[in-house]
């Protein structure tokens, strides 16, 4: 059964990676922990569900959610972080936590405190690989994650925008000396990161067939643990960290009889990493 658990773990881990990517990208350029990013993720689930009720097509709702979250990400950057950037870093962090809590309340007031179902069927069918059965929804998560990661990889390593994004995260001041409009590069980081979070929201909504106001609470802090594990600001590290935590949790829960709280694993790992390897798996010293 270990292979079955591995498939489950990779599916969860893929979603973790998608959420955490935005966090790491924003940290990379602004050195801010963008906690409200998990609010964007939940927003993606709600917007996706709303779109699905109008047009019951998974891909349509995915695209709408990603677009809406990009916009939301840019607005958060423009109206929340930019005015606070010159202040000590604790200020934007607190503002971000505040915004996140406010977003959860807004979801609760607007959509109700219930768990809503998200019965989208992308029509992929399931896949039998030997003894392992990859379900319809797992296939969906893998497919969407692979596409998004491929697009991100292409942007980061093959385009001028990607080069400017790397330069800006390595030295923002000098990037502007080179003629790079760093404000726009920061906006691009929010846009791309938020779109991925929106996609993750839709995927989780469909995978567990549930959308609810506090669905971002655990991911908010778990994504933090993942980027610490991967190395703050490192994109490959974040993907690796997400997959490791997803697989680790699932195996621990599925293969052992220890009554272990699932969500604790990520944070225990985070504490260990901070103690023994503070720059993470693939981060820079």
């Amino acid at each position: 059964m270990i292979w079955q658990q591995l498939a489950n773990g990779l599916a969860i881990g893929s979603v973790y990676a998608l959420i955490a990517l935005g966090l790491t990208m924003v940290y990379g350029v602004l050195r801010i922990l963008h906690i409200a990013h998990a609010g964007i993720y939940a927003l993606g689930a709600y917007i996706g569900l709303l779109a699905f009720r109008f047009v019951p097509n998974f891909w349509f709702s995915l695209v709408v959610a990603m677009a809406a979250c990009s916009l939301a990400g840019i607005l958060v950057k423009r109206y929340l972080y930019m005015p606070l950037l010159t202040l000590p870093r604790i200020v934007p962090l607190i503002a971000s936590i505040g915004l996140f809590i406010a977003m959860e309340e807004i979801f609760r007031i607007v959509a109700g405190p219930y768990v809503l179902s998200f019965p989208a069927d992308p029509g992929l069918g399931s896949l039998q690989l030997g003894i392992v059965k990859i379900t319809n929804n797992q296939l969906l998560v893998f497919l969407v994650t692979c596409i998004l990661l491929a697009v991100l990889w292409f942007i980061m390593s093959k385009t001028k925008l990607g080069l400017a994004m790397k330069a800006t995260s390595q030295d923002l001041e000098i990037a502007s000396v080179m003629g790079i409009d760093t404000e726009r590069i920061i906006a691009a980081n929010f846009l791309i990161g938020s779109a991925m979070a929106g996609a993750a929201g839709v995927l989780v909504g469909v995978y567990f067939n549930s959308v609810y106001p506090t669905m971002g609470s655990i991911p908010a802090y778990k994504a933090l643990a993942i980027i610490v594990l991967g190395g703050l600001g490192s994109i490959p590290g974040t993907v690796l960290g997400g997959l490791l935590i997803g697989v680790g949790e699932t195996l621990l829960l599925g293969m052992t009889d220890i009554p272990f709280p699932r969500d604790a694993l990520a944070f225990i790992i985070m504490i260990l990493i901070l103690m023994f390897r503070p720059y993470g798996l693939l981060g820079k010293e």
């Binding site: 080069l163 790397k166 330069a167 390595q170 030295d171 001041e173 000098i174 990037a175 000396v177 820079k284």
Partner: peptide
């Protein structure tokens, strides 16, 4: 050309 060079270290 900034003091301390300030290259993009990982490029």
């Amino acid at each position: 050309v900034p003091e301390g060079r300030r290259l993009f270290p990982d490029l």
